[in-house]
Design a protein around this nucleic acid. Sequence first.
DNA 1: GAGCCTAGTTACGTTGCAGTGACTGGGTCC
DNA 2: GGACCCAGTCACTGCAACGTAACTAGGCTC
Lengths: 118, 118
Amino acid sequence: MFDAACPSAASPFRIADKWGGMVVLCLEAGPRRFTELRVPLQRIAPKVLTETLRSLERDGFITRTVFDENPPHVEYELTPLGRSLLPAIAACREWGFANLDKMREARERYDGDGAEAA
Amino acid sequence: MFDAACPSAASPFRIADKWGGMVVLCLEAGPRRFTELRVPLQRIAPKVLTETLRSLERDGFITRTVFDENPPHVEYELTPLGRSLLPAIAACREWGFANLDKMREARERYDGDGAEAA
DNA sequence: GAGCCTAGTTACGTTGCAGTGACTGGGTCC
DNA sequence: GGACCCAGTCACTGCAACGTAACTAGGCTC
């Protein structure tokens, strides 16, 4: 879903923090558990995922529900406020699909000129 | 235009870097000079503005034109690629107008609970 | 009783963004 | 000849984000 080559890392848009937007997208289809979120976000460290989730919870975008079971069971789910982010995130993604290549070309041109001049 | 109390600093959306989105908006109406950009962005340091402009130029969002005059004269202007950002930025701003208050309330609730518990 | 499960925590280190304060350089004005 | 103008640069600092690696807790299974 989001592999290391995913160009979204280069997007000029950032939601909350580096992983915030991706987590929100992962929750779009419904509630998920901690380890279910780690699967699509392969490269995220548990510590960073915890921080991201706490930050999203603080901002009122997601809820954290603990089920008193064994093994432990915690679910994260988008709130209405969290869902309100989706249209804006979609606009950012659309921009990316249409223009990220142009941005990368511009960047290579700029860096290339600099390297030649040096 | 963007004073210290401007809530956009709290927005979960970030374009390029902290000031990138605001600079693009400042250039929406037409080309501007370095010091003309500093006026609406009161609190930006010249170093930071230079870095922001270089970064936007690298990504192909703006052009930098030097007029060989005295005193020095440099103009920054949006490229078509830079203008392509405007609809997405507008979507992010609309989200802010509609929801930033709710986000702040959620944040205060969260921090308040934490402070009471401690 | 060793090891696995989930959902984290703790300690530590690196990187980069952001910001402050002082300074530059060529030309014009007084 | 001193001060001001614009458009920066330079050296330095603070802080948060990001990341790695190792460790924890309680209960279940083998």
